[in-house]
Design a protein around this nucleic acid. Structure first.
Lengths: 165, 165
DNA sequence: ATAGATTTGTTTGGTCATCAAAGTTTATTG
DNA sequence: CAATAAACTTTGATGACCAAACAAATCTAT
C-alpha cells in the first residue's frame, strides 16, 4: 500500500478516535449511551415497529437489541407490545418520556461539528460531503457482502430524517 | 443546523459503523483486538518504553493500559521489566512472538480500503485526503481542551511510522 | 391435519474496552 | 524525615457485543 493511502487510513482513524470521545461526552450528559440514543431515534422515525426492524437498522444482533431494549424499558423510554397478527413479534414504541428525552438530547457530534462545518464556504462544504461519501463507498463496497449492515443509503435515510429536529 | 451539515454527520456515522465491522473481522482473524494491535504497533515504533507512554499515546487510562498489557503478556507478545533508575516504571517491549505476530497481522481496514483507494486517480486521492484532514480538524478543534486525547498530528506520527511495513 | 422447518425474540454466558477510586511502591521536595 | 507526587496495579463497575441454546408462533409440504 502506498504512502498516501496509509496516510488516508491514519486520518480516518484519528476521526474515529475523536468521535468516540464525543460519544463519551454525550453519554455523560444524557445518561443515555449512543447506542441507546440511536435506537430511540430510529424508533422515532419508524414509529411502532417490531424488534427485528431495530436490529437490522442498527446492524446489530437480536440479542444485543434485546439487551438495549431492556435498559430503555427500565428507564421507561420505550414500550413493548405483543403483536396481534404475529404473536412472536414484539412491537416497540416510544413512551412520552422517550419522546421528551429525545427532544432534549444534545446532538453532541452534530452540534459542535455542525457549527464549524457551517462556517465553511459553500463550495468547501460540498466538497467535504462528496469526499466523505466517496470514502464511505470505498469502505462499504467491501463490507456489504460480508455481513448484515445497512447500506450507506439506508443509513442516510434513517439518520437524516430522525435527526431533523 | 442545516441540511447539509446533518448529512455530513450522517455520512461520518456510516463510516464509523463500517470501520467498526472491519475491526470485528480483524479480531476474528488475528485473535487480537484492535486495541491490542494498536498497542503492539506503538510498541514496535517506540521501542522499549514505560507503560505510561503507551497510555498517553493511545489516549486511554493507565488502568486500561494495564489490563491490555495483562492480556498481551499472557499471550507472550510483550515483556515487562522494572525500570532501573526509576523502579516505579514498567518498561515494555515486544517479544519475538510479538514481532512475528505484528508482521503477519492483516491490516484489515488498510488492505481493503487501500486497494480501492489506490485505484482512484491521483487528483482524487489528494482531494480525499485533504477532505479527511479537514474533517478531522473540524472535529478535533472542539475536542482538544475537553480531554486527554492525542492531537491529529501525534496520531499521525504514531501510525504513519508504525504502519509503514 | 401434522411433523418439520423457519422465524422472532429472549436468555445465558462470555469476551472485550474502558473508567474511577483505592492501594502500593518508589521518587522528590521542603 | 515527613509530606507529597508519580507510576503502576487492583478492584469493581458499566456498556457493547456476540454465539448458542431455547421458547413460542407461524409456515409448509405432504
Amino acid at each position: 500500500m502506498n504512502q498516501r493511502s496509509k496516510h488516508a487510513v491514519t486520518v480516518l482513524r484519528s476521526i474515529l478516535r475523536v468521535t468516540a470521545s464525543y460519544d463519551r461526552l454525550v453519554t455523560r450528559d444524557t445518561g443515555l449511551t449512543v447506542s441507546q440514543l440511536l435506537l430511540l431515534r430510529i424508533l422515532e422515525e419508524e414509529g411502532e415497529c417490531p424488534a427485528g426492524t431495530i436490529a437490522s437498522r442498527m446492524g446489530i444482533s437480536q440479542a444485543t437489541t434485546t439487551s438495549l431494549l431492556h435498559k430503555l424499558d427500565q428507564k421507561g423510554l420505550v414500550q413493548r407490545r405483543r403483536g396481534d397478527i404475529d404473536k412472536r413479534q414484539v412491537w416497540l414504541s416510544l413512551t412520552n418520556d422517550g419522546v421528551d428525552k429525545l427532544a432534549n438530547a444534545p446532538e453532541g457530534l452534530q452540534t459542535k461539528f455542525g457549527e464549524r462545518f457551517e462556517a465553511l464556504a459553500d463550495w468547501e462544504q460540498s466538497m467535504l460531503v462528496a469526499g466523505l461519501e466517496r470514502v464511505a463507498s470505498l469502505l462499504d463496497a467491501e463490507k456489504l457482502d460480508a455481513s448484515a449492515v445497512l447500506t450507506a443509503e439506508e443509513m442516510l435515510r434513517v439518520q437524516t430524517e430522525s435527526e431533523a429536529s
